[in-house]
């Protein structure tokens, strides 16, 4: 005899449960966390290097950086003097909450103000995975198409802030920032959008202010 079992629960419930634990850990310790998401090569690590240099005197920070292979990014970030831990996913296209929790267990989180999670470069797979962060920050480089927010609405609809990176390339690429902004605003009329160039150190200070307002001691 066939029986129907009603579940009506999230597929990623197991991940969500761990993410809630991570969120509670961070909240109790007074740590602000953001999850930085973009396609590969949009300049996440370069931007973070500049951001860490700006904030290292004021905020106590930890960076967790996910990649499919190598610890190249963590090594670049460590040059700033801030602790950076590489999470090698070995093929998985996104970070999941348990790998964040593993890094936080046993740490003195009260000695931190800001946790930065640099996700694996991907605009699709990280979308549904809550990592326990306070904010998702989505980066889009001007070397990509200005219609990317329209192509990947899932992640842009969940962004708490958007970075338009590599703005130093604008004179050389057909990217139309106003078109990109229009696509983003159709999904989120009020989301803050920060045009930044890590190379020329333009606009990063405005993003750093946004972080300070949230993670300031």
């Amino acid at each position: 005899m066939t029986e129907r079992i009603e579940l009506a629960e999230p597929v990623l419930r197991a991940n969500d449960i761990v993410a809630r634990r991570v969120r509670r850990l961070l909240e109790e310790a007074g740590v602000y966390a953001f999850n930085l998401i973009s396609s590969p090569g949009s300049g996440k690590t370069s931007l973070l290097v500049r951001l860490l240099e700006m904030l290292r005197g004021e905020l106590r920070m930890l960076v967790l950086v996910g990649d499919v292979q190598t610890d190249n990014d963590a090594r670049r970030l460590r040059h700033t003097g801030v602790e950076a831990v590489q999470i090698v996913t070995g093929g998985t296209c996104h970070l999941e909450a348990p790998s964040i929790e593993r890094q936080l267990i046993g740490r003195r989180l009260a000695e931190l103000d800001l946790l930065i999670i640099e996700n694996v470069g991907n605009l699709v797979c990280p979308t549904g995975y809550d990592l326990g962060e306070d904010a998702k920050v989505v980066a889009l480089s001007v070397a990509e198409g200005d219609d990317k927010p329209e192509k990947y609405p899932g992640i842009f609809a969940r962004a708490d802030a958007v970075l338009l990176t590599k703005t130093d390339l604008l004179p050389h690429v057909p990217f139309d920032p106003r078109a990109a902004e229009g696509h983003i605003r159709r999904l989120q009329p009020d989301v803050p959008i920060f045009p930044v160039s890590a190379l020329r150190d333009e606009g990063v200070a405005a993003f750093a202010d946004w972080i300070r307002a949230r993670a300031g001691r």
Partner: peptide, 15 residues
């Protein structure tokens, strides 16, 4: 957003 972001197991049929 009321719906459109979810990923849900609704139900299953077992024997």
């Amino acid at each position: 957003i009321a719906s459109g972001q979810e990923l849900e197991i609704v139900a299953l049929e077992v024997e």
